[in-house]
Computed example of a mutant assay.
Amino acid sequence: MLSALQHYAFCPRQCALIHIEQVWQENAHTTEGRLLHETAHASGGRMRGGMKSVTNLELASAYWGIYGRADVVEFRQEGGTWLPCPVEYKKGRPHPDHDADAVQLCAQALCLEEMLGVSLAEGALYYGSTRRRQRVTFTAALRERTAAVIQAVRALLETGVIPPAREKAACAACSLKDRCLPGVSEDSASRYVRKLCEDEG
Results as ranks from 00 to 15, higher is better:
121 A>L: 09
200 E>Q: 08
38 E>V: 07
31 T>W: 04
168 K>L: 03
129 S>D: 15
167 E>M: 07
87 V>K: 13
81 T>Y: 07
8 Y>M: 02
60 A>G: 04
111 C>N: 11
90 K>I: 07
14 Q>H: 10
167 E>L: 11
166 R>I: 08
64 W>R: 06
11 C>Y: 02
108 Q>F: 02
33 G>N: 09
2 L>R: 01
56 N>H: 09
141 A>Q: 11
142 L>R: 05
156 L>N: 08
54 V>Q: 12
27 N>F: 01
133 R>D: 13
164 P>S: 12
46 R>T: 08
91 K>V: 13
162 I>F: 13
22 Q>R: 14
19 H>E: 13
177 K>S: 07
87 V>A: 10
77 Q>L: 14
27 N>L: 02
107 A>V: 02
113 E>P: 13
99 D>Y: 00
131 R>V: 03
100 A>F: 01
164 P>A: 13
185 S>Y: 00
11 C>L: 02
108 Q>A: 12
66 I>P: 07
117 G>Y: 00
198 E>D: 13
151 Q>G: 03
177 K>P: 03
73 V>A: 13
119 S>H: 05
3 S>A: 10
17 L>H: 05
99 D>L: 08
119 S>A: 09
175 S>H: 04
87 V>E: 13
103 V>E: 04
115 M>E: 15
123 G>Q: 06
165 A>K: 00
21 E>F: 00
7 H>D: 15
124 A>N: 07
76 R>K: 07
134 Q>E: 15
173 A>Q: 08
190 S>R: 15
14 Q>T: 08
144 E>K: 05
120 L>W: 02
39 T>I: 08
61 S>L: 04
181 L>N: 06
165 A>I: 00
